[in-house]
């Protein structure tokens, strides 16, 4: 069921990418780590200027957020644990991984969101 939903949702994005007429929301949480101080941030596309909103949309697409494979994360000493949730066109999808399991294609988005979350503190 979930796979089917992901496939349909992913297809929509693959065809249309993120249509900037439609708003999207991101929620990011980073927990764990040596200091174990959690940070989080929520980003709404309508709160960003157009250029930044496009940049974020491209990062989400480059992650293959909705249909890319993510290796299983094992609990690992002091690694961060990231959870990213995207809400788009009334549907929501979430991915999570540790530092070691993070696919390389996610690095720009995680870097962007980590900075946002740390700036917010």
């Amino acid at each position: 069921m979930w796979k089917k939903f992901s496939a349909v949702f992913g297809l929509a994005l693959a065809c249309n990418l993120i249509n900037m007429q439609d708003q999207f929301q991101l929620h990011f949480e980073r927990s764990g780590g040596f200091a174990a101080i959690m940070v989080q941030v929520a980003v709404r596309s309508d709160s960003l200027d157009a250029k930044e909103a496009h940049k974020v949309a491209s990062m989400i697409e480059n992650c293959q957020f909705f249909d890319g494979e993510i290796p299983e994360s094992k609990p690992s000493p002091d690694q961060f644990y990231y959870v990213i949730r995207v809400l788009y066109r009334g549907q929501e999808q979430e991915v999570s991984f540790t530092d070691a399991a993070m696919p390389e294609r996610y690095r720009p988005l995680v870097h962007y969101l980590s900075l946002k979350a740390r700036e917010k503190k």
Partner: peptide, 28 residues
């Protein structure tokens, strides 16, 4: 960059530089 953490990855120790990417008065 801006990696405020250190970890053991099963084989090696890995260290970040903290939050050097933030303005100095915001760094923790």
């Amino acid at each position: 960059q801006g990696y405020d953490n250190a970890f053991w990855n099963g084989e090696r120790m890995v260290y970040g530089d903290g939050d050097e990417d933030l303005p100095e008065d915001q760094r923790l």
